[in-house]
Design a protein around this nucleic acid. Sequence first.
DNA 1: GAGTGGTCTAGACCACGAC
DNA 2: TCGTGGTCTAGACCACTCC
Lengths: 269, 269
Amino acid sequence: MATAQLTAVPEPKYWHLRTVLLRAIDTEFSTGQVLPNERDLSARFGVARATLRQALDQLELEGRLVRRRGIGTLVAAPRVGVPVSRREEGWPGSSRDQSWRAVDCTSAGASEQLARALGIAVGELVHTVRRIRVAQGQIVATESLHVPDSTLKLLPAIRLSAGGGTAGAAQAESDDQARSVLRRLERLGVDGDSRSVELGVAEAEEAALLERPPGTPVLVVTTQYAAAGRLAAVGTSTYRADTCRLTFGETGLVEVTPVAAVPAARTAS
Amino acid sequence: MATAQLTAVPEPKYWHLRTVLLRAIDTEFSTGQVLPNERDLSARFGVARATLRQALDQLELEGRLVRRRGIGTLVAAPRVGVPVSRREEGWPGSSRDQSWRAVDCTSAGASEQLARALGIAVGELVHTVRRIRVAQGQIVATESLHVPDSTLKLLPAIRLSAGGGTAGAAQAESDDQARSVLRRLERLGVDGDSRSVELGVAEAEEAALLERPPGTPVLVVTTQYAAAGRLAAVGTSTYRADTCRLTFGETGLVEVTPVAAVPAARTAS
DNA sequence: GAGTGGTCTAGACCACGAC
DNA sequence: TCGTGGTCTAGACCACTCC
């Protein structure tokens, strides 16, 4: 890696450092390789460790680096494309929906916020299925799927809560309930959805599910599911922003490959 | 705002501080209001200024705060929902596509990366239209739309480059060219698209267009446009992550409202 | 000029992982 | 036990905005 001193430039040191490190990553390192440690790097470039860390923070936010306490700083693998369009992976609960794994299920009265999102009354019973998504052996997302009981009421009852059972069987029971809700949702026949995507940060519990520290940047996907022309459920999916590229494929001509922004937009000659 | 000392907790000070500040923002401040300055706040909470700034960094990343040099730290307005689905806003160049404003247009041989994304040969002529998107009086995105000349060749030529003209007219000429490319693209009839969304950071020039400092987190949307069953163009749109919530509405049942993640996922009783 | 956030320094100690 | 990244401190100076 180049060891040249930073030249005097009008831009901040940490930003220049980022550029230098980015080039080094692209040209001299490969995925999974460990960089020199922070104390060495800061000494090499003649900056304080905090300044170097500011540059590494940027590169980590861009998904180019992964830092592991006790291990070192590694060059990250390219982001994995994760299909989010339900048309391809199947609606929640459908047999084609293989990418999600149900974790548990809770049932409670709707909070004011949740009631507004679902278009129901506050306190109305809502089932919440918690799922995690695995792609290429990695946990990439968690999801909370909120299904009003009134949605499921549109179907003949199957079985929701078996009741009883020992404390040790509680987890398996919750799994059962999750599957039951999903099964009934499938039977109802979801026929449309609309989504929004925004940047967020993972809080304690969610961060733990994603195996990341709190404050990890995430892509928050909010989805509305329609059935029989009416809002049937809403889901909040939280994807790791460092490792995921969300894809919304309808036509799917070829693999979507990101293109770097055009460096200059000068007038055509 | 509460002035209580931080209690001894296993979590980092900056993270606890973020939680305290977040509650204060939600309960005691309103949009546009300025918080006490960083030196006051750090003294009030008994932490170093750098630690306080770490907490503010988080809240800024979440889009809850806006910091302006020389002014202060303000409570941010809620994110604006920006429709990204072309079915609603019209394909590029169509008369319904009112949200974008063409800035300029360049024509050059395809780089290796661009050629791969477009499925054409390296060096083949590609027209690049640069546009900016304005929503509610704010610049929210920039875009580079890459259209291979071979795509436009499918149409009878209209006029691409008038040539000549003084240097002062160069900008207007580039505008003309941008419009011409868009017009021809419209005539060709785009009939499908697929997209991907990922987190990125704005570099110098792009950051300037978005009126933000370099390193600003952005949502990078890569779009493929299909015409006549073949890849006709690709676009890279860069949205300000702090102010934007991207919406992909197909059915559009009701306004998509984000739902906070479920705080706990305990076993159902 | 006064006040703000932005950058940078040179240290210190802690938590975690590997040996 | 040692090396790693993570947190935190107490200062300094700069760039920008407003008066």
